Simulated assay, not measured.
Amino acid sequence: MGFDLTRFQGTVDEELICPICSGVLQDPVQAAGCEHAFCKICMNEWISRQPTCPLDRTPITPAQLVPAPRILRNLLSRLRIKCDNFVDGCQQDIKLDALMAHLEECEYNPKRPVTCEQGCSLIIPKDEMKNHNCVRELRNLVQSQHQKLIDLRREMSEHQFQLNEQKREINLLKDFMRAMRVSNPMMRDIADQMERDDLVRWSATLPRAKVTRWGGMISTPDDTLQTMIKRTLSEYNCPPHVINDLMENCHERKWPTGLNSLETRQSSRRQYENYVCKRVPGKQAVIVLHCDNQHMPEDMTIEPGLVMIFAHGVE
């Protein structure tokens, strides 16, 4: 629909008036063939009922409508129009192309967002302020947030249930594969490869770690420290079939021969920088996986890998 003619100063050229609604063109379009101009909304409604030009009956489809030429839009932009809120007291007339910007700031706009100064500080439309009740609105807000929290918890519970079901199915499949591996040598090879692939995929999700102080290595971590690291590995989806092996290999008694004593570690220090280390998220610990370190000497690695815990020096 176009703008009401009574809102404009002086006489408006008839070329700027929509033949359908008889208002000043709003968002004007024209038919590509006959070049008659109309309001976009008016013309779309017209074509939906009768696909012809309202003036000369030339067949028109929606795809044939194009924006009005710049000269027409420039003429429209120079017209001066009363503010939409003139009935509410606004006395300003502005250029048509500045109307939308003015409406956002117009102090007479009944829908202009204002801040409640009665205590709740909520932002509400100006015309609703007279019926605004801080206690009621805050209560409604609290109830709304509470319902959102309930819905979120329900959604999280459903996701957790689905996740648990998926884990259960995966574990059943792994149990089946293990049983098949015991009874069938070929299946044993396939299952072993699947587990190796799981470990490689998990390794790719971990951030690369840099050890700046190898001297901070704890070669005999206590049970509490080991439990904390194991919990973190589990939280970050360490494959279940290797998590116990990795944790057993966090103590020097399980380390490869190049690391299992202070003397051998001292003589192997030049090799440390060649390790590909993955960070145990949030901990001063790294994982040295065999699949990432096949370039290392045999006496420096172990399958499936080992955990090194540090007092400090892991970035």
Score class of each variant (00 low, 15 high):
E303W: 12
R49W: 04
C116E: 02
K254Q: 08
I309N: 03
H102Q: 03
Y108L: 06
E35N: 14
K167A: 10
P221M: 04
S183H: 07
N260D: 12
T52F: 07
I150K: 09
L5K: 08
T227M: 09
T115G: 04
S267H: 15
I71L: 08
I218A: 05
H36N: 01
D4I: 11
R269E: 10
Q166K: 13
A191P: 08
M308L: 15
E195H: 08
F8N: 01
E15F: 05
A37D: 04
A37F: 02
M296K: 00
K126D: 14
R208N: 08
M187E: 03
G10R: 04
D198G: 00
P59S: 07
N260R: 05
G305N: 02
D223Q: 14
T115Q: 12
Q284V: 03
L233Y: 03
R112C: 05
E298V: 09
M228F: 14
K126G: 05
H290R: 08
H295S: 07
H102G: 05
M186I: 15
T212C: 04
A179L: 11
A311M: 11
K40Q: 14
P221Q: 02
C34Y: 00
Q162I: 10
W46H: 10
I170Y: 10
M194N: 11
Q226F: 03
I47L: 15
L262S: 09
C250I: 05
P207F: 00
R213N: 11
T220M: 12
T232E: 13
H36E: 00
S268A: 11
K126S: 14
E107Y: 14
E105Y: 10
D175F: 07
F8Q: 00
L206R: 03
M180R: 09
V29L: 04
W255T: 03
Q145L: 15
G10C: 04
G89L: 02
I94V: 15
L72M: 07
L152A: 13
A101Y: 08
H36K: 02
T227N: 07
T52Y: 08
Y275P: 02
V87Q: 14
A311S: 12
P62M: 05
N237G: 12
R153I: 15
R208Q: 08
N109Q: 05
M217D: 10
G23W: 00
A37N: 07
I94W: 06
P59H: 05
R139D: 10
P207M: 03
S22I: 07
M100S: 13
N164A: 13
C277F: 09
L79P: 01
Q284T: 06
N164H: 15
E298H: 11
P28R: 02
M308C: 15
L141T: 15
D93T: 13
P256A: 02
P51V: 02
L65T: 06
Q160Y: 06
C106I: 04
W214A: 10
K283C: 13
L199E: 06
A179D: 11
M100E: 15
S234N: 09
C21N: 00
S268D: 03
P54C: 01
C83R: 04
V307E: 03
V307L: 05
C34W: 01
R269I: 09
P207H: 05
W255Y: 12
M247I: 13
L72Q: 05
Q193H: 12
E248I: 11
L75K: 12
L103F: 07
A32D: 13
